[in-house]
């Protein structure tokens, strides 16, 4: 027999490892939203997103830009009177939407995350120019020119590397990662 999980239960499972109290204990006091510096740019405030999850409105939640507009500042987490961890919730929803491939196409975040991970699997270290193309998108051509200007400013000050830095033991590193996730998915 199979049981279909409600979306709020699925989200709860995602949060199992993160700790924090269950979302069902939320009293909708909006302390999280009031503490959130990114709230004006979110489709739904953190409080509202939690209400949507608790109402099992999966599609509405996944269509929201909220969890990709979170800066991971943890202000909400520190202030929630019920010990809920909205910041980890935002991470969990990002993972969920990447796994399920259900994120919105107009967002830069999912692609940025994947690129970043690919860079590190290749080098063991992060390399800013390697994932620059991901963030050139958003601003279109003027955005690209601005990025290039910024990059040139850094370059002139010797603050951008021309070749990526690599760890020495890349083979061992990749064997280790291979025991956590299948590497093929990222290559």
């Amino acid at each position: 027999m199979t049981t279909t999980l409600h979306f709020d239960q699925e989200v709860m499972n995602l949060l199992h490892a993160a700790g924090g109290e269950p979302l069902s204990t939320c009293i909708q006091c909006a302390m999280c939203s009031a503490s959130c510096p990114a709230a004006p740019f979110m489709d739904d405030s953190p409080r509202r997103l939690i209400a949507l999850i608790n109402a099992d409105l999966r599609d509405q939640v996944l269509a929201s830009n909220t969890f990709w507009t979170c800066a991971s500042c943890f202000a909400c987490t520190e202030r929630c009177p019920r010990g809920i961890d909205p910041a980890q919730l935002m991470y969990a929803l990002r993972r969920y939407s990447i796994w399920k491939g259900v994120h919105r196409e107009d967002l830069v975040g999912p692609d940025f995350s994947r690129r970043f991970v690919r860079t590190i699997l290749r080098n063991g270290k992060s390399y800013e120019p390697g994932y620059a193309p991901a963030f050139i998108w958003e601003g279109g051509f003027p955005g690209m020119v601005r990025e290039v200007q910024g990059a040139l400013r850094l370059l002139r000050k010797g603050r951008l590397p021309l070749i990526p830095s690599r760890i020495k033991d890349l083979d061992g590193f990749r064997r280790m990662i291979g025991r956590i996730i299948p590497l093929e998915g990222f290559e």
Partner: peptide, 19 residues
């Protein structure tokens, strides 16, 4: 103690610039 926007500068430029 307020956030600088972190990686939103990449993923959500408008929000980060406002912050």
């Amino acid at each position: 103690l307020r956030c600088c926007g972190g990686s939103l500068i990449v993923t959500s430029r408008k929000a980060a610039l406002a912050m």
